[in-house]
Simulated scan of single mutants.
Amino acid sequence: MEQPQADRRETYLAALTLEIQKKLQKALNMPVQRPRLLEVLFADVALEVKDEARDSTLRTMYLAEIILNKEEDEITKTEQSLCFYDLLADYYVQAPQAGNSIVDLIVQLWSQYFVSHIFALLFHKWLFEVSVENTEVLLRYASALVQGSSNIFWIDIQTNRRRFLSLFRFLFEKVAIVPHERNKIAVQARRDLYLLLSRFLFFYNLDDDMLETFIKHFPAFPNAFLIGGPADVFVIEITDQLQKLKVEPVVLHYISRMSTLQGLELRMTTSTRLKACLYSFTSPGGPMYPTRAVRHAAWETLDLLFPVGRYPRHVISLFFRLLYPWCWPSSCWNFIKTCIRAFFCYFINKIIASWEKMRRPDTKSS
């Protein structure tokens, strides 16, 4: 008699769990090869189910057409490809005891770099479903979740991909803005979680109206009298994050998304910090060395958020541009290209308008 699909799915998930357990045990027994083994395991767990470009042990055992157990239309509608960690995280929620052996091995490997990554991917849902009585252990789990998620999101930043979007959405939609869920973790870990989500919120491109909801659910910070309210904390994290970015498309995306900050009530110090951050991207040279596209995007966002003093800022910027004589040729050339492009567009529009005007009598006569 043929085994039901649900049972087969659970069988393969259990086989995957056993394979992960074996790899963790191997890493524990082989200290010299431990970093490499954990790195490979993390890559396997983060692998897309339908990825055919890599020969993965997990993929070989998994048999994607059996284990998916989802409608194909549902999969194609998602913004990202389905990864192994998505399915395993759901499995450990449905069968918490299945992941206990993996958690025990992870605890023995806490000090290793990729361990927090693996824990965050596999047990980000499990952590909010199981009951952990020991407060110290719960704090350790929550801290590992935040630290691992931060490192994982930086991988997406560096590659300009959103493979870990489902992890971010879970932490945001199922934890951060759900009071009874976020209260399951310690206060310090909860604050760190909100700071983490603040840094990557613009990158994962959630709806603009979610920003207001997110800020309303911010926890209280002990130094709030120094740094300000939730909006100030959020903007401080965003400005710090923006200054760390090195990938041009990601920088452009962040700067364009910062237009959603318009209308936020900020302290003078926070507003000045935001203005200085954007202004640092408007000039060529160090320390940012922004490209022309980044400079123009920064100017547009800066003028949108801070319209007062717009023209004096541009005059001062022009003065300081004179201090970089090696940039004059490129600036002049870009100015000439812009003028030629504008003239060409104007000329083409005139020709099209004249042609349309000449056709109108023929249309009326016919």
Rank of each mutant, 00 (worst) to 15 (best):
A6F: 02
E10K: 02
Y12E: 08
Y12N: 07
A14H: 10
L16K: 06
M30N: 12
P31L: 06
P31H: 05
P31W: 05
R34V: 04
V40P: 00
V40N: 06
A43C: 08
D44P: 03
V49L: 13
R54E: 15
T60G: 15
M61Y: 07
M61S: 13
Y62V: 12
Y62E: 08
L63A: 09
E65T: 08
E65G: 05
E72S: 05
E74S: 14
T76S: 14
T78W: 15
Q80L: 03
Q80P: 06
L82D: 07
F84K: 00
D86C: 10
Q97I: 11
A98C: 14
G99I: 01
G99M: 01
D104W: 02
Q108T: 13
L109D: 08
H117Y: 11
E129K: 08
V130R: 06
V132S: 08
E133Y: 07
L138H: 01
L138C: 01
L138T: 00
A142R: 04
S143I: 01
S150N: 09
N151C: 05
N151D: 12
T159F: 07
T159K: 08
L171P: 00
N183F: 00
A186L: 08
Q188K: 04
A189C: 08
R199H: 00
L201F: 10
F202L: 12
F203Q: 00
Y204G: 03
N205D: 15
N205Y: 09
L206I: 01
L206T: 04
D208F: 02
F214I: 11
F218R: 04
P219F: 02
F221D: 06
P222W: 01
A224V: 07
P230W: 04
A231V: 05
A231P: 02
V235L: 01
I236N: 08
T239C: 11
L242Y: 00
K244L: 10
K246A: 14
Y254I: 01
I255W: 02
S256F: 03
S256R: 11
Q262I: 12
G263E: 14
T270W: 07
R273C: 07
C277F: 06
L278E: 10
Y279C: 15
T282S: 02
T282C: 14
S283L: 13
Y289M: 05
P290T: 06
R295S: 07
T301K: 05
Y311N: 13
S317V: 03
S317P: 02
L318Y: 05
F319S: 11
L322I: 13
Y324S: 14
W328E: 12
S330V: 15
W333A: 15
I336C: 10
C339R: 06
R341C: 12
A342H: 09
C345N: 13
P361S: 04
T363P: 00
